[in-house]
Design a protein around this nucleic acid. Structure first.
Lengths: 210, 210
DNA sequence: TAGATTGTTAATCGATTAACAATC
DNA sequence: TAGATTGTTAATCGATTAACAATC
């Protein structure tokens, strides 16, 4: 158990978490790797392998307790504790992230938006204040946050990321279509919406070839 | 060349496309697999393998013509032609997608937003009209579109997708945190923003273990 | 106990990397 | 021609699937 976890397993974990939440909401108490596999379109074998990266949460002859497994995976993902997010860039994307209630519902709480536009600074989006980026350091001292949602124009994304790294930030959820260069101890997840559309376009075009 | 292309290769294609556009903008005319690999953090070997899924675009002793390769990959992705997108759901996400100019800049043109809210129907977001979902079929007859951006609440996402499939739509860019069930000939790309945050949370928590 | 289903090892499959002949 | 770099085959590596003993 524990030890090294492959990127492939990591990327499946949120799917497990989501399906287990759905099962819980449906009132399902127990599920076998077979049934969960049918639901998630994975093999039973893969599910048992994945789960066993983290320890034996199942019982032979019974399967997995839905709530128990959901809680375990939540802890593994780190969503059992609240994360505080600062959004940089109060444009369309920053605004949409700030206004969404699905992130807070999953433990990701937006504490502030930062921008440089004097028209925006001082306003609020939802109940999140829009602050001047120059006040970031001061704000952070009072309201520490652990995640940066980077929603700034592509041409300034690297400079802004460098600046925030300089101020100690180490986790970036990046919406700019660029491969940021960050310190080795930083964590980066890219969204890259355009790439999804391009993959969709590719698959539409090559659909019949399959 | 051609033939079967693995999912892994498909997902790297937009990255090639983006980096080649950047190189073009920098005025670089020619690049070797070695250099491109350093830039994209892939091995030279992998780059040659990937590109050769689609035919020999390089020249021995020289490398690849940047513009030529960018154009080829653009064609392969299908972004050499304009795609017309209808956004379903004029909430935060639908609005952000409609207002972004990075999608039109990449050949994905938003033709309309659809919603059920009478407060929203009849308005415009950017220069995109917000129409009643009941007028979808009529609108589509006049203004055919090939991609649906699905940005509706999770609890109605499947029903809306079913309805749109019934009206002949076959390509879905889905923002709802749900695994849609679609006909076998439909194409689906999920965005699932929450999952990205959860992966980020996981990696932050397990950072030191690496 | 008998039946079911896990945890885990072994086998297979596919993707990545290495190597090198072809050739610009 | 000599040097560089591709296209492509072979080797390696890692992830998925299959099998089955352990056990609830």
């Amino acid at each position: 158990m524990a030890g090294y976890v492959s990127e492939a397993v990591i990327r499946r974990l949120p799917g497990y978490y989501r399906h287990l939440k759905e099962l819980e909401a449906e009132g399902v108490k127990q599920i076998s790797s077979q049934e969960l596999g049918e639901r998630m379109k994975l093999t039973a074998s893969q599910i048992r392998q994945d789960i066993n990266c983290f320890g034996g949460f199942g019982r032979q002859g019974y399967g997995y307790g839905v709530t128990e497994l959901r809680e375990h995976i939540g802890k593994i993902l780190g969503v059992d504790t609240v994360h505080r997010v600062a959004i940089i860039g109060a444009g369309n994307i920053g605004r949409a992230v700030a206004l969404s209630d699905s992130f807070p519902a999953n433990g990701f709480q937006t504490v502030a938006l930062f921008d440089t536009d004097p028209q925006k600074v001082g306003t609020s989006i939802g109940n999140v204040p829009v602050l001047d980026i120059t006040s970031f350091e001061h704000f952070k001292a009072e309201h520490p946050m652990d995640i940066i949602a980077l929603a700034v124009p592509t041409n300034v994304a690297q400079a802004v990321a460098d600046q925030l790294c300089g101020l100690g930030m180490r986790a970036f959820w990046n919406f700019a279509p660029i491969d940021l260069k960050l310190p080795g101890d930083a964590t980066l997840v890219n969204v890259h919406l355009e790439e999804g559309l391009e993959v969709l376009s590719f698959k539409m075009k090559h659909r019949e070839d399959a």
